[in-house]
Design a protein around this nucleic acid. Structure first.
Length: 493
RNA sequence: CGGGAUGUAGCGCAGUUGGUAGCGCUCCUGGUUUGGGACCAGGCGGUCGCACGUUCGAGCCGUGUCAUCCCGACCA
């Protein structure tokens, strides 16, 4: 194995470092020279674009429309909702001036002090405030509701420590913001969008998720309820992969969004917001990758099938080109993305390793031997199995194989996750085992004190109260008091 | 903002008691190769983070400063 790829074997030693190098080597993204920011490279962005397209269609099926709101938020907007500002104040980038000027030595620029803004502008950390300030003008009657908007944009949160895709100062996401006439409708919408996220994660990303509701301390700033999908990474840590918030009337009241209901009585609008970000890329990478690099589920792979010809001279290459052409055409007719890599400046072995590193689900290899025998070598990325098959019926076979891979990577991830979910009611045992990762289902008395103690002792947090776990009576493993529910506890990213 | 470390070629690093900078990878050129990350030969590439100081002389010593990374606190 080439020296620079030794990192792939280090996975169990230092998962963070391994992840970081994989992201860079697979050509997904790299750290920008700008503090805490990330450059998403074309290959990584192609995956994100596929995610965007699928999610966007799913949103629209539920009646959501896209819109766009400003990047800059007047400082005063942010302070209108007390909990919201408290949650975000510490990580906001602030615009204070609108002009630069040449410095005294004429070899650079300085901020022009005379161009100080009367009111500072905040670069959005999330857009509830500016959107609800706008909704005030859009909502007057119950007939204006529900209002269902989504925007695809970037946001900025000045994080202390950043990691590619998982936590960067600037990140790309979508944020949906809905307004409703009734509490019931808003709550239903918040849960509906969580279901959309869960379906997307499992069906397309092949990432199994636990759906649930956050504890009060983990709740979004300004929300009454925060719903979440939690995925398990291969080191056993949890990754919050999407959230949907029921915001009650908090923002309706803060921004004075009132409407007249059917009884001609004024009422504050009910709100939800929900979002997923480029963090999903991190989930995708950390759920499926192996020692050969990335493993992409076919539904999201920018290249689903790569064809590598093996040739010794131009004549052979010509023959292979001709033999391969109908296969490519047929695959593309089925909507399959195919790359035919007949570049002469790289050797086959290099190509094999490179496409494996990039997670291409299926590889077809054709050489002079195959031309004689009418065969082709098929390799599937998820299991790395190779087989020689007849060219006859190869297109239909590959199509089925892609479906099989999509299903298999999900089943594999599901199996891994389920094998690392434990029921545990003994705190000493919990403390010992949680270090090694995994999800723990534990009885909880519902108090913030217990939550804080667990975090202090083990760095683990309550990820959520899962929806699909049968709730049995029990006692809190820390306090010994009667438990209100069984919660999911894990260390997380 | 606390605790620790590091800044030398695009990347990863070495550089001895202070004497004017080197190795591997990458990249470029030529040739031979091509069924699992090729080999040989030649070549390009550096204000040693920045500033000041000590010295005949600083990558190396001193002071300051900036930046980055790791461990905490904070987080989609």
């Amino acid at each position: 194995m080439a020296k620079e790829l030794d990192f792939l074997t280090k996975r169990s030693v230092d998962y963070s470092k391994w992840y970081n190098e994989l992201v860079v080597k697979a050509d997904l993204a790299e750290q920008s020279d700008v503090r805490g920011c990330m450059v998403i490279k074309p290959y990584g962005y192609a995956i994100w674009e596929k995610m965007q397209r699928i999610l966007d269609d799913m949103f629209k099926e539920t009646g959501v429309q896209n819109a766009y709101f400003p990047l800059l938020i007047p400082k005063s907007f942010l302070s209108r909702e007390a909990e919201h500002v408290e949650g975000f104040a510490k990580e906001c980038a602030v615009v204070t001036h609108y002009r630069l000027k040449t410095n005294e030595t004429h070899d650079g620029v300085v901020v022009d002090p005379s161009a100080k803004l009367e009111e500072e502008l905040i670069i959005r950390p999330t857009s509830e405030t500016i959107i609800w300030n706008t909704y005030k003008n859009w909502i007057h009657s119950y007939r204006d509701l529900p209002l269902l908007c989504n925007q695809w944009c970037n946001v900025m949160r000045w994080e202390m420590r950043t990691r590619l895709f998982l936590r960067t100062s600037e990140f790309l996401w979508q944020e949906g913001h809905t307004a409703h006439a009734t509490r019931e409708e808003a709550e239903a919408r918040a849960q509906q969008m969580l279901k959309v996220y869960a379906t997307f994660a499992e069906k397309y990303m092949a990432v199994p998720v636990v759906q649930g509701v956050k504890s009060e301390t983990e709740r979004f700033a300004g929300a009454l309820d925060t719903y979440t999908i939690e995925a398990m990474m291969q080191d056993g840590k949890a990754l919050q992969s999407g959230t949907s918030h029921f915001l009650g009337q908090n923002f309706g009241k803060a921004f004075d969004v009132q409407f007249l209901n059917k009884d001609n009585k004024p009422e504050y609008a009910w709100a939800t917001s929900w979002g997923v970000s480029t963090r999903l890329m991190g989930a995708l990478i950390m759920t499926h990758s192996d020692d050969n690099g990335l493993v992409l589920p076919p539904a999201l792979a920018p290249i689903q099938v790569v064809i590598v010809p093996i040739f010794k001279n131009d004549e052979q290459l010509q023959q292979l080109n001709e033999a391969v052409e109908p296969i490519i055409t047929e695959l593309r007719k089925l909507g399959i993305t195919v790359k035919y890599d007949n570049a002469e400046n790289k050797r086959p072995g290099f190509k094999f390793a490179d496409y494996e590193l990039k997670g291409v689900p299926v590889r077809l290899v054709l050489g002079a031997r195959d031309l004689e025998n009418g065969t082709v070598e098929v390799m599937r990325r998820d299991t790395l199995e190779k087989e020689s098959r007849s060219l006859e019926g190869i297109v239909a076979y590959v199509k089925d194989l892609l479906d099989d891979i999509q299903n298999n990577v999900f089943q594999k991830a599901l199996k891994f996750r389920d094998e690392h979910i434990y029921e545990c009611d003994n705190y000493e045992e919990f403390k010992e085992r949680v270090k090694d990762g995994g999800f723990f289902l534990c009885h909880w008395d519902g108090t913030a004190e217990t939550e804080a103690k667990i975090k202090e002792d083990t760095q683990a947090t309550i990820r959520c109260v899962p929806f699909n776990v049968e709730q049995t009576p029990g006692v809190d493993m820390v306090s010994g008091k009667p438990a209100t529910c069984r919660v999911l506890i894990a260390r997380s990213y």
